[in-house]
Amino acid sequence: MENNHKKEAAPLLTQFLIFSTILLVANILSIGISLMWSEFPVPTPLIGLILLFMALVSGLVKLEQVESLSTNLIGLIGLLFVPSGISLASSLDLFKQEGIKIIVVVIISTVVLLLSIAYTSQLVAKINDKLHHKS
């Protein structure tokens, strides 16, 4: 599906520039949205993701200009989560009171999310098939 003759990756500085430009624009948009609807935060990374996707689809940014930095960042994502995990150290008081309950609720929630999405998807597929058979 993808072109097999891969083009050479763009220099790291170019990749950094593209990432930081998009993140800056995304951040400005995020601040703008939060000024208009303060209760509906749209986080910068989410806007950045949409902008980068649009830039790739429109051809403004070429795949080889962002691919290797993206692959490296995604490969490190586990490490990047560690500080947010350690942030629990600042809420140990609440955690001491409710910790076990919270963990049980999270475990059940995980299974609920998994089943609810999987079954809804099966249902949507069934409805979809029926509609297509009729038409």
Binding site: L23, P45, S70, V82, I86, S87
Partner: peptide
Amino acid sequence: YKQYKVGGDLIFWFLSPATMAFAVPLY
């Protein structure tokens, strides 16, 4: 924790470009 956070935040910041990077597999 506040002292740890000085360095931890620097690493945490990279979660933003890393989340944005998921545009590539999506594309």
